[in-house]
Structures are given as structure tokens and as C-alpha cells.
């Protein structure tokens, strides 16, 4: 049962894809080739990022992370989150394993939520795309709204969540 549950989303989506191919073979074919294309991107990006997460897990000392992103980090926490999220590459889901490892190492929830916000709205490579598509004024508004908003979401999350409950499952261990 648990196995079916884990693969549920994948099974439903595969059925949808088969349905699409049956109804509209042309669109279906597009979907298949797009899926394969993004699979290539994912398997190019993800393994090195996960190795990086593994290395962070082994080498970065808890006290170091607490100093830069911990409860009393204040401005440094914001700065580190900005740097990590802003220089990032890749889709949002790649940020999740990084975020949870930083949290495990003692980072404050506020900076983790802010880091995820920076990753989604203000990573540099994407900001450049945005400027060329909509101009710098629009981009500036987007980035500023995003940064302020997600910082305050972080403040709220810090009050609302207990770090221990968030860390319940260790995704770096296979045994459950």
C-alpha cells in the first residue's frame, strides 16, 4: 500500500500522458519529448547539487552555520540567504534538499524561508531573463516585492514552526 502511495502521483501523470497521446497524438508527442528534455536537465543538475548537500552535511560545522544563519545571525543571515539563493541555478525543487540540510545544521527557519523566496524570485540568471523581457523597472518591483514579502513570511514561519518537527524525517538516510 505504501509503495502504491509513493508512486501514486507518477502513475496518475503517466495515465494522463497516455490519455493525451490517445486523444491528440501530436500534443502527446510534444509532451513526451518535453519530458525527456527536462529529464536531461534534471539528471545533469541534480546529482552534483546532491553531492554538494552531502558534503555540506559532512563538513560544515554546526557552530559555523549557527553563527551565520542561526537565531542571532540577524543581518548576516539575510545576507547569506541572499547570496545562496541569488547565485543559485535551477528550479525550485533543487533548493529543498539544500534548505533542509541548512536547517538541520542550525540555520534559523526565518532565513531558510527567505532563502527559498530568494531562490524563486531573485536568482541572478533568471533576473537577467526578466530584465530583457520586461525591463528593469518591472524586474526591480518583482524582486523587491518578493524579498520583502518572503522575509516577513519567514518571520511568521519562525514563530509558527518548531524546527524539530520540520526535521522529523532525514532524507539523507534510506532507513525509515
Amino acid at each position: 500500500m505504501a509503495i502504491i502511495k509513493r508512486w501514486r502521483a507518477l502513475i496518475i501523470l503517466s495515465l494522463l500522458l497516455i490519455g493525451l497521446v490517445a486523444i491528440n497524438p501530436e500534443r502527446g508527442q510534444t509532451a513526451v519529448s518535453l519530458t525527456l528534455g527536462s529529464a536531461k536537465d534534471m539528471f545533469l543538475l541534480l546529482p552534483p547539487i546532491l553531492v554538494l548537500v552531502g558534503l555540506i552535511d559532512q563538513w560544515i560545522d554546526k557552530s559555523l552555520l549557527i553563527k551565520y544563519m542561526g537565531d542571532d545571525a540577524k543581518f548576516t543571515g539575510v545576507l547569506v540567504a541572499l547570496l545562496l539563493g541569488g547565485l543559485a541555478a535551477g528550479p525550485m525543487y533543487i533548493a529543498f534538499p539544500i534548505a533542509i540540510t541548512l536547517l538541520k545544521k542550525g540555520a534559523n527557519i526565518r532565513y531558510i524561508v527567505f532563502f527559498l523566496g530568494v531562490w524563486t524570485t531573485a536568482k541572478l540568471p533568471i533576473v537577467l531573463f526578466e530584465v530583457s523581457a520586461f525591463g528593469w523597472k518591472y524586474t526591480l518591483i518583482h524582486v523587491l516585492v518578493g524579498l520583502f514579502f518572503f522575509y516577513f513570511v519567514g518571520v511568521f514561519f519562525e514563530k509558527h514552526f518548531d524546527r524539530e518537527t520540520l526535521l522529523k524525517e532525514d532524507i539523507t538516510n534510506l532507513a525509515e
Partner: peptide, 13 residues
Amino acid sequence: LLAILLFVGLSLA
């Protein structure tokens, strides 16, 4: 992860 890939393909198509 595989579910995400299928989702990307489907939404783009």
C-alpha cells in the same frame, strides 16, 4: 522527481 518531469512535459504541451 519523475512526477515533476512528467508534469513539466504535460504543462508545456
